[in-house]
Structures are given as C-alpha cells and as structure tokens.
Design a protein around this nucleic acid. Structure first.
Length: 448
DNA sequence: TCTGGGGTCCTAGGACCC
DNA sequence: TCTGGGGTCCTAGGACCC
C-alpha cells in the first residue's frame, strides 16, 4: 500500500543564518537578530543560546552580555530574509511539485512511500532527507533540518528531534515513520512543544497530568473535542498518524491586512500619531493594489505600552461605503476613525503616552468581484492615478511620491512637548546589515 | 399580552502559529 | 529609559427573526 508522508524543511535560526551567509567571518560567533524597532531577540544561534540568552528577550536586558562576549546584533533586514527564503523554496521545489511554503523559514513537502518494504523505504527516505539538506545548503548557504513523518504534526515533533541529532554532531535529518524509537521520542517531547498547543492549553493539560506528546496522543479524541474543541482533536489524531491537516499548496486567499508598529518613542501629540496611522493605511493600500484586492472594512487602533498598569487600547471599525483600494479614500476614513479613537488623558487627568498605532483592513475581495455602480461618484481616473503612484514609488524608491498627511522625513516640526518631532513614530533600526541580494549598491564588496 | 425554543448572522476576543 | 509584527481559526454571546 502507498502511504503519503510529509517532510518538514525548517531553516535553522533563519534570520541569523541569512546574516552569516554574507559574513563568513562570524560563522562561529554568537549572533542574534532583533525585532522591529530593535526591541527584542527574535532569532539566535546556538552560540548565543549558550550564553543563556532566550528568544524574546529585550535588547536592553542583555547589552552587558553582548559586550562581554563580543556577540553580534542585527536589526531585522526583511528584504534580505524574504529574498533568501525565496531561494530556499526554489531549491526545495527541485524535489517535488507538492510543496507548501508554510512560513518564511519552513516548508512542507508531500511524498509517497511504499508500505510493503518498510526497511528499504526508510533507508531511501533517510537518503532523500540528507539530499534535501545538502542541496539547500549548497544552493543557498542556509542550513536546514529535515524531518519526515506520516503527518505534519509528527513531522514537527521529528524536527525537534533533529535538533538533538545536531547537538550530537550528526546531520539533522530524521524519518519518524516506523522509527524504532518513535514512542520514546514522543514520550520525551513536552506537550508544550507540540504544534497547536500553546501556553493556555499547556496549562490546562499539565493540570490534568498530560505532560508529554505521548500522553496527549493516548487521550480519547471525542472527549478532547468536547472539552477543548476541534483544533486539539485534530492534533491528537495527527499525533496518532491520522492526517487532518493536509498540504495547502495554493497561496491561501488573504482575509486581512494588518499593519502596526511601535513608535521609536512614546507619543502624546495626536497629529504625530495620526501621521503614523495614515502611513500604515497608505502602505496597506499599496499592498491591496499589488495583490489586486479591495477592502470593505477598516479598523484603526492605538494603545499605550503593555508594560504600564493603566494600559489603554482603543479601536474603531467602520465599513467602507464601497469596496476600495484607493489610498486617498482609505486614509480619509483612517483619519476620521483616528479622531474618534483618540483620547488625550484618563478620567483622572493623567496624560496617555501612546506607544503603538495600527490599522486592519478586512473583508477583502478580489478587484474582479466588484464593479462600481453607476453614479457612485468613483471616477475612472482614480485607479489610474493610484497605478501611477505605485509605478513611481517602485522606480524611484518607497515614498518618493507620498501623501503630505503621512509627514515628511526632513521637515522638522514642533510637537506639543516642544521637541523636534519629525517622524518620531518611525522605526528604530540601528544595527541593519546591507540588503546584499536585492539592492545593487549594497552588494558584497570583494577586496582584491 | 405573555411565554418559549431554535436558527442564523455578526462581532469581539481568545488562542495559536511563525 | 528601553519590552515585535502579521496572520488564521474558533467560539461565545448578542441581536434578530420565525
């Protein structure tokens, strides 16, 4: 009988690996990459982990450690990572047509395997996994881990196991299908590490003495459904080798576009915060147009830091009169919603210091699904104007043509506090590496 | 007028992922 | 002082109708 198996190809410390590809001199040094705004660590190498630094740690807490051990810190360079990700997928696609790119650093591949000759099939699959590992490394310079199993959830468990192999100095490739130690691997995997089990579920499960993947797999799926819902029921089936989450090859139809950023400093001046809201709206409208979509609903939100006691989170949503991807229409509505949303101080009179603003476009529909009704007031020149705007920004660089309400980088204005407030909401990126693969002027320089 | 049940649709929020 | 962002799916609860 033929069985379908899934291979998970997972890039190791992907963002750090991308930085290392172009900096062979740092191959052995501790490296980490920071989140937007240089906030906290989002990718780190084993050398960095060995210093006791964890994923999600804020930069300011580890500054001394970094100095002491001469560790390297990079701001996130998404142009570079997106391009490297594309190259990795290209390399993977030479092995199969059935590839799902699950995230920027992970892909699943579906394979058929022959049940009748399990021993030789296992050998063949192990060789295949190693072939994928070698190919991706050779073509892109990015080290991956490869794990093959009967379901995606089991492949995820196997991928954790390959980290163990890596520590033992072996090639990080494994085939969990009929693996002699499969039960042992499941019983040493904490339930919190299982794909689909997050913090809240872990707490509940551990309370019921379900601490490992093996114990979760042994539970009765019907009662799991009653108590925890359909999502965890699927996970239990998947751990038992029954596929419930098939390969998703087509690029899923996008349901929403979200855009938000922390400000580089706390803001109280509504005009500055509104600039950020408009800028997010314009960026998102560009994304809509590039994907030939229209939005039917817009949400604007602003909030203060999560880390203060008197946290405020305010949001206002509104449906658009007609579906649109027009920057002018969307930013006009965004401004209105922002004005409804903004409050300067608490009932007790304390001034709110806002740390973040964002917008969400939802209920997206394809451009082709909507024709503007007659007399709707939409002029046919409007999409044309947007197309020209997009073309110019593509050719001359982001924001060469922009809405004045987004604020201008070089016009210093006075904020309410009296300081120079130009683009105070813009992102901090102090440790940025060159965009080696996507911008001509930032190519690697070779000394002769 | 009162009472009840069931279905649908919508929205907000929680939980999860990387 | 400084603590990320973008996305999907499910569920509970309210409003409304029959």
């Amino acid at each position: 009988m033929r069985t379908t198996l899934y291979a998970l190809v997972d890039c190791s410390a992907f963002y750090c690996s991308c930085e290392r590809v172009f900096r062979p001199d740092i191959a052995q040094r501790p490296v980490c990459v920071l989140s937007n705004n240089d906030g906290c660590v989002v990718s780190l190498t084993p050398e960095m982990k060995a210093l006791g630094i964890r994923m999600g740690t804020p930069l300011f807490q580890i500054k001394d450690e970094i100095k002491k051990h001469k560790a390297l810190v990079f701001s996130s360079n998404y142009s570079l990572y997106a391009d490297m990700s594309r190259r990795v997928v290209q390399a993977i696609e030479t092995f199969s047509d059935d590839v799902e790119q699950y995230s920027i650093d992970e892909s699943f591949i579906a394979f058929g395997a022959d049940d009748a000759s399990i021993v030789s099939e296992r050998e063949r699959l192990q060789a295949l996994a190693e072939d994928i590992y070698n190919t991706v490394l050779r073509e892109t310079g990015i080290p991956v881990r490869v794990s093959i199993a009967e379901t995606k959830t089991l492949a995820k468990v196997g991928s954790l196991y390959t980290k163990q192999l890596l520590k033992e100095g072996k090639i990080p490739c494994s085939v969990l299908w009929h693996h002699p130690e499969k039960q042992l691997i499941l019983s040493t995997t904490p339930v919190s590490e299982v794909w689909g089990v997050g913090r809240a579920l872990t707490e509940k499960l551990v309370h019921e003495r379900v601490g490992t993947a093996a114990q979760l797999a042994a539970l009765d799926s019907t009662s799991i459904r009653k108590r925890y819902g359909i999502v965890l029921e699927k996970t239990v089936h998947e751990l038992n080798g029954i596929c419930c989450i098939p390969l998703d090859e087509h690029l899923s139809d996008r349901k929403s576009i979200i855009r938000s950023r922390m400000f580089s400093k706390k803001l109280t001046d509504p005009s500055l915060i509104c600039e950020a809201v408009i800028a997010h709206t314009v960026r998102s409208a560009e994304k809509l147009r590039s994907e030939k979509l229209l939005a039917t609903q817009l949400t604007v939100y602003i909030c203060t830091s999560r880390h203060v006691e008197s946290r405020v989170y305010r949001s206002v949503s509104r449906a658009l009169v007609l579906p649109t991807n027009d920057s002018f229409v969307l930013s006009a509505l965004a401004r209105t919603l922002f004005e409804e949303c903004f409050i300067a101080h608490s009932p007790s009179g304390a001034v709110y210091r806002y740390s973040k603003a964002g917008i969400v476009l939802h209920e997206l529909i394809p451009e082709t699904a909507f024709t503007a009704p007659l007399f709707s007031g939409i002029q046919k020149e409007q999409p044309l104007l947007m197309a020209v705007l997009d073309k110019m920004n593509k050719k001359f660089g982001k924001n060469s043509v922009a809405l004045a309400s987004m604020g201008t980088p070089d016009t210093a204005r006075k904020t309410a506090a009296g300081k120079s407030g130009a683009r105070d909401w813009a992102m901090k990126r102090e440790h940025m590496s060159p965009r080696y693969t996507t911008v001509w002027s930032e190519l690697v320089r070779v000394k002769l």
